[in-house]
Design a protein around this nucleic acid. Structure first.
Lengths: 95, 95
DNA sequence: TTAATTAGGTTTATATTATAAACTACTTTA
DNA sequence: TAAAGTAGTTTATAATATAAACCTAATTAA
């Protein structure tokens, strides 16, 4: 068996992986929804969303729902590729 | 309402996962062999082996090969179970 | 009308973790 | 016998994850 391929450190984090996994299966998701699905605290989620956004793995849109702020996330093509590559690399470890 | 199962933090680390993955497929492995297969530095490997050992995921035997020290690692039943549970949980994220 | 509470976040401080550098102890080679 | 190599361990630091504290605006209660 070959040397183990590196795992993208941005994706090899439980919360960020959960966010990405969620976003892989929907068109887009709101901050509060992601928070509920992942069980993360708002602070932690905010930081991790920011990291994914800065890597261009997700696109973040800030608007308002009525009078409340609304943060919406959507996975990008770059993010989809990164996720798929990560899953691929990971299979080397778990199969 | 946590849809994502927690990932064992001891296994959710690239190097420790590689070590465990390797040990899942062999009866036992020597320190130097693991070092080569994983590409890790000796220092890092030493630390991570120690962590896995303290959790009873692997059993570490120190002896000598001729006059050189020889560290041999072997996965335990506890380690096998943890690995399998980890892989199972992970599938929730990547499928 | 003011005070407290809630919603939806962000910022910052701290705890945890991973990693490399430095070190130990011994052996082999020139 | 000095230098280099082997097989690791210990320790210092960089990186990361996380929670606590904070912010702004809107509601609700007194």
């Amino acid at each position: 068996m070959n040397h183990f391929k590196d795992l993208d450190p941005l994706l090899h984090s439980q919360l960020r992986l959960a966010i990405m996994s969620l976003l892989m299966s929907v068109k887009s998701a709101e901050f509060v929804h992601i928070k509920e699905k992942t069980g993360a605290t708002a602070g932690n989620l905010s930081v991790q969303i920011d990291k994914l956004s800065k890597a261009d793995y997700i696109q973040v849109t800030k608007s308002f729902k009525g009078k409340k702020p609304l943060t919406t996330c959507k996975i990008t093509k770059v993010g989809i590729n990164a996720f798929e590559e990560y899953v691929n690399a990971l299979k080397q470890y778990i199969n």
